[in-house]
Each structure stands twice: as C-alpha cells, then as structure tokens.
Design a protein around this nucleic acid. Structure first.
Lengths: 350, 350
DNA sequence: GCGGGCATTGTAAACGTTTACAGTCAAATT
DNA sequence: AATTTGACTGTAAACGTTTACAATGCCCGC
C-alpha cells in the first residue's frame, strides 16, 4: 500500500543535480538558474515528490504543530474554540493536535511529557481549573510545560502562570443577567450552578450572589457536578422538590446552555408554562440556544473570537517574544423569549 | 522560554556511557546491566530528559500520528466520531490531527499533499461525497492518498476506492421511519432533505421514496442545501407555504437532527401543537435530541462506535495488511414523543 | 591455559532534509 | 590579459535518534 516515497536524493539524481539544488528549487531560492529550475521541477512533478516534513522538522527544530488542551471536543463550547483556532493555524501552514484533558481528570506530568516529546511549537489551553489548592496542581504542571514551549490560555488567569490569556468576564455577565431579571420584576431567583470549585464557576457564583444582594433579592442555588443536559434536568427537579411551592423562584439562571437544555425539558415535563411560570436564562449562546422552546435568553461568549485570537498570538510568539498579558472580554446578554422580556413573535404563514 | 532540550548525547556523556546505551535504557532493552540501567535512569530523571519524537519518527518512518478528514468539528455528528477515534488512538500512543474539508469545499490535490508531507501513518475519512460525477473528484483524490497511507472511511463505499469502510445503512433507516409513521396512521408525509447529491443524502431519499411508494403513501419533499437549524426552519416554512393547507403533510421526516431543531422551532412559532398537528422525526440522535420540545423521535447512528472501530482498524493496518471490507450497521429507531407514538409522561413533582 | 559462549557496551551508519561554505565558470572590468 | 564579480552549483555537516554489527571482557568446560 504505502509505496516507499522518493527522497530528495532520488530526485536530485534523476535531474542530474545535487540534493541542495533540489532543496533550493523547493523553497524557490533565488540562486538557481531558470533552466535547472525547470528541469528539477519536471522531475518533481513526474514523481509527485513531497519533501518529508519530519526530516525538515528535525533540522529546523519545529514541527509546525500546535497543541490544544481541552476537556472535551464534543462539548460545543470547546468545539467552537478549537475550530476557530484550527482554522487560524491552518491558514499559517500549521497543524493542530488535540490533547484531551478529560473532565476532572488529573493533569499529570506524564500528560505534559507527551507534549514535550512531540516537540510542539506551542500550546493553547482552555478549561476549568481549581485555584491554589488544586489537587492536580494544574498551575505547576503548566508552568513546567511552559519551560519548553509558549502557552496561551483561554480562561481566567491561572495563578503563578505568566502567559498570554484571553477570557470573558462572566462575573460581570452574571451581574447583567441578575439586573435584567430584577428589572423584569423577579424577586426570587435561583442559580443552577456547579459543584466544582473552578475559577470559572466561582466567578459566575460571585457575580450572581453579589448582584442579588445588591438588589436585595432572594438567592437560591442548586449545584450539580457534571455539565450535561441530564444533570440540568436533575438539578431543577431537586431544586423544586426541595423548596416549598409557594417559595419557588420565578426565574432560573443556569450555568451554561447545555444544562439549560435539560432544565427546559424538565420544566415542560412538569407542565409549567415558560416563561410565564418560570423564566430561564442560560450562558454561552450555543448553536442550539436560539432553537429551544422557548428560545433561550443567554450570555454570549465569543468562543470563535477567543480561539482565533489566541492562536494568532501563539503563532506570533514564534517570531517575537510577546510579553504576557491578559485580555478580558465582555459578555453580551442575548435576550430571547425564555426570560419573558421578548414575547415570541411567530412567523406568519401566508 | 523554550530552553534548549538536552539530547541523548548529553545524557550519555553525563552518565559515562554511549548514546546507544541510553537508547536501550529508554526502550527497556533486556541487554543492559542493572547497574548501568540505574545509573542512566538517574541522569534521565535529573534532567527530565524526553527523547525527541521527531528524530525517532525520521528513523522509524512513522510519526505515530493519524489524520482525520471531516467537514466540520463543530457539527456534533462529526465531533462524536472524532472524539471516539481520538480516544482510541491515544490509548495506543498515537496522536490525531484533524484536517477540515470545509463543507462543499473542493478536495484538492494540494489538500492531500499536506497529509503526504506530514507522513501520517493513516487516515480516517468521514463526510459526504458525490457519486461518479463528483466535480471535486473525491474518489480520485483519495485514491492518490491511498498510495501513500492506509485509509479507513466512515461513509458508504466510495466507488473506485478499495478500503475498509464502516457506515450505517440509512436507506434502511428511512424505511423504518416511514413504516413507523405509516403504522401510526400517517398518509401524507414530507421529507425535508438536502439538495446536495451526495451518496448519504441519496440513500436516505431512496429509502424514503421507495418505502412511501410501497405503502402507497403521499410523498412531498423540500430539499435545502445547508445542514443547519436555520435551514431547517426555512425549509419547513417554504414547504408549508407552498402546499395548500388542506394538503399539508401530517408528519415530517427531517434529514438530520440539527435541521430538525429548526423545524421544531418554526412549527412552534407557527402555533402548531406537536405532535398532534404535526409529527416530526429526525436522524442521528444527537445529544440534544432527547431534550427538544417534544423530545425528538430519531434514528440512532452509533457515531462513537464508528469512530472507535474505524480507528482500531486503522491502527491494525500497521501490523498486518488487512484486506478491504465493508461493515454495514443498522440504525435503531428511537421513539420519543415527537412522532406521537409515545405520549410524553411528565415526571411528577412531589 | 585456551577456545567458545554469553552478557554487556560501543561504533558508526542511517533516516531525509537544510544550509554554510567553498568551488566553478563565464562575463565584465581594469 | 589578468582580475574581479556574480550567478550558480556542489560538498559536507548537522539535526537527534535507533540499530546492525563489532568489540570487549568474563566465565566456563576442557
């Protein structure tokens, strides 16, 4: 099957020149005569010769490959980041490898060893991490990795790790949501969050509680530990079973749209009318969020933008050492029908 | 930043042995004395030396890397395939690179050139392709690629390309759906399909029309050319505007769940009650399909299974030349509420 | 004491490129 | 006519490993 490829020497021989000349033809080096160029090109075309990028990488100390570490590529949030990052990399003739850091899996030294062995040109990290006390010690592991290659992160700054990072301020985002719901007249609002004590979860909780307190509203929470629609359904069921009916919240904020999907389903199953009996707001604005029933009000996070910018910056570190910095973006509240502010306007049929 | 890594020679020197001995220690070669082993290991640990996999790859003519060609990683269908394939590869110490063949983009010779240059150990292909007349000539391009590395495909057999392939028979799937809807009493059924003349679309159309004819039912179609929820919404709107109200279908089959998402939304927006006014069936059983309103009846395609098996087979070609074969799987009809066969049973609140 | 066998280690070639440097040759300059 | 120039091309080292083969030294049986 895999026919032994021609090497640059084979080509050189057949064209009656040295390997160096073939190499020069390949890279369009100026110092090669028209005649030789044509002659060598002909042989290259004849055998459809492609230089071995592994050999080239060895010499140039670059694999033209970037690594991307994230918890899951099937999660639409990370898929969007990855996809944009990949496009940007490909545009620059780089290739991207995913390293999956399974949710809650320990990031071990062996894990980063793999990246180091592969001699990647850089790494983009996105995912949750636990402050300070992190038993997996993500910061330490990434710090070690950084001694070998540049890192750009798409998440709040990781303490101790000095690198470029880009993220969206979801503490601010949650404040926006709370203010919006408060303005709509909701007094009792629940937050369906997560049990993991990651920074990104903590940010959202803080935004929620702070702003609730500021507005003098009644906060309830129901954390769950896995971010799936199933868990969203479970969480809201637990919440509404736990709380007396007359003390039910009138609005739910769900930590991400994936869980919100399950929340909506469960509320429907319980026979509640949305958004009148219960308003729901999500977070992330996934591709499906405009198509839920009712369409989901949510916070938009520009995942594609994050992925693209992060990869651009990572590629740039190749040429010039860029000093570390943090870029914070502001989430936008996308108002749809599920919060009750925007009555759905059915498209008329003719 | 990237500190120059130690080489095997540095280690050898410090341990007072030759590079060959270090190499033997690394690969746990039997012929090395306990004493030397310990001594060399110590130096390796001391500097946390990791062999350069690029240099190794050059010699062993293997990058321990597999390529995966697919249209889009943000599409949950392909994300699931990819994720499973990746897990399987990682388990075998392989790494995976995605090559995105943008939807409807021409697969060009330059595209496969990139794969060849990278000297991948194999390629897994999944995506649509157009029979015979394909202007992009996917078959020809893949045939060329196959001269350089083994290929496994997750799609119906590509004419002219002799390789291992795994797919789910959606012609059979559509027959199942039609029979199911027929049994529920539907006489007039519409198929919301796709305009692209790919084999996988064609299969579904054939299954639909054949079975409709066999049952003597009334077939309507509305093809659209991009597989998004937006297009699903658009398609159903066009369909219902085009057809006289009294000739409306009572059931819709949508070519995939992504489009079905938009279909459901549009039907709700038009004020129809589902499934009573209109039954809906999708295809693919995506992660969100159990959480739509009403939950979506659909055909299950074991994407994870496809991805895992395909990668296993690809890895195996390394050891032993496996003769080409085709493995066809049978889709399972998942009956949920959207087709009206299974009345939703709301979970009771206490 | 000597050859054979064995365990261990070293030597050197090989993998397929790129590139600094040196060389060649013809044309241009003096 | 000798020298300089410049365009072009070849030589060889280098990148960091692995591995076939050779070499060493030791123990054993004779």
């Amino acid at each position: 099957m895999a026919s032994a490829s021609k090497t640059i020497l084979d080509i050189a021989q057949e064209a009656g020149v040295s390997a160096a000349t073939v190499s020069r033809v390949l890279s369009d080096h100026p110092n090669v005569s028209k005649k030789t160029h044509a002659q060598v090109r002909a042989v290259i075309e004849k055998y459809n010769y492609k230089p071995n990028s592994i050999a080239r990488g060895l010499l140039q100390k670059s694999s033209r490959t970037m690594g991307v570490i994230l918890p899951s590529i099937t999660h639409p949030y990370y898929a969007a980041i990855f996809s944009a990052a990949q496009d940007e990399a490909n545009r620059n003739d780089y290739v991207v490898q995913i390293y999956r850091l399974a949710y809650n899996a320990k990031i071990t030294d062996e894990f980063v060893d793999k990246l180091i062995e592969r001699r990647l040109d850089g790494v983009l990290f996105s995912g949750g991490f636990v402050e300070a006390t992190d038993p997996n010690n993500l910061p330490a592991v990434l710090m070690r990795l950084q001694r070998y290659m540049p890192i750009v992160t798409i998440c709040p700054p990781i303490p101790g790790l000095s690198c470029i990072n880009i993220y969206t301020d979801l503490e601010l985002g949650l404040r926006k949501v709370v203010r919006h719901l408060g303005a709509l007249g909701h007094r009792r609002i629940a937050f369906i969050g997560a049990t993991d004590e990651t920074r990104s979860v903590g940010d959202r909780e803080r935004g929620f509680f702070d702003e609730m307190q500021k507005l003098g509203l009644d906060a309830i929470t129901q954390p769950e530990n896995i971010h799936t629609p199933q868990m969203g359904a479970m969480a809201v069921l637990r919440l509404l079973q736990r709380v007396e009916r007359r003390e039910w919240p009138t609005a739910l904020i769900v930590i991400n749209d994936l869980m919100a999907l399950g929340v909506l389903r469960q509320l429907h199953a319980m026979g509640l009318r949305l958004p009148d009996d219960m308003a729901v707001v999500g977070c992330d604005n996934q591709f499906f969020s405009a198509f839920t029933e009712p369409p989901l009000t949510t916070l938009e996070v520009d995942t594609e933008g994050h992925g693209r910018s992060a990869m651009q910056l990572l590629l740039r570190t190749k040429d010039a050492e860029t000093p570390p910095f943090t870029q914070v973006r502001e989430p936008v509240l996308i108002v749809r029908a599920s919060c009750g502010a925007d009555k759905p306007r059915p498209q008329k049929q003719s």
